[in-house]
Amino acid sequence: MTQEVTHWLDNLLKEIEGIEVRRKSSRRVRVDVPADALPALLELLQGRAGYIHLSAISCVDWIDDDEFELVYHVWSYENHSLVSAHIRIAREPGVYLSVYDLYQPAGFFERDIHEMYGIQFEGSPNMEKFILTEWDGPPPMRKEFDSEAYINEHLSWQEYNPEWLQELVAEGGGVIIPPEEQRFSQKKK
């Protein structure tokens, strides 16, 4: 990507209010926009800058901030560059607009995110179960979902009692630190 194109894209992006542009490399641009400005940004990128390919929508659960971060990655075949548009939405109620009308593949990603994070995308064609068809627990990628607690409730572990262990227990030894307690030091003050 030539210097000129870079310059041109930066100028174009300035049209969006509240935008913050960070150039990560010659082919990667990160932009942070307010959530309500994202459709306008994508329209601009698709219609005027040639970013016609939505390669992914990713989601991050920032539970301490009470926010979800959605990242829209759009690719241009013309200047071979990727723009990642980051927005933050409130965790509750966790509703956002679908960009299906701009990029049809969005339907696929939004369905996935809905399933994994429980975010509702208004206007998305299909919010049915996707991969977790037989799952009836909470959206498992949300940070409040405790995978280990879920496992302990629903599944059981192998309970070994080999001879050598019985011998050690008879001697006064035995299991001192089970592996569950080894996840760093869990000591509370």
Binding site: L132, W135, G137, P140, F145, S147, E148, Y150, I151, L155, S156, W157, Q158
Partner: peptide
Amino acid sequence: TVNGGMYWQSYATAKKLDE
């Protein structure tokens, strides 16, 4: 198949086949 292996923390995999 014995005790969950490296997927021991996964909510989506069974841990003990013999159950």
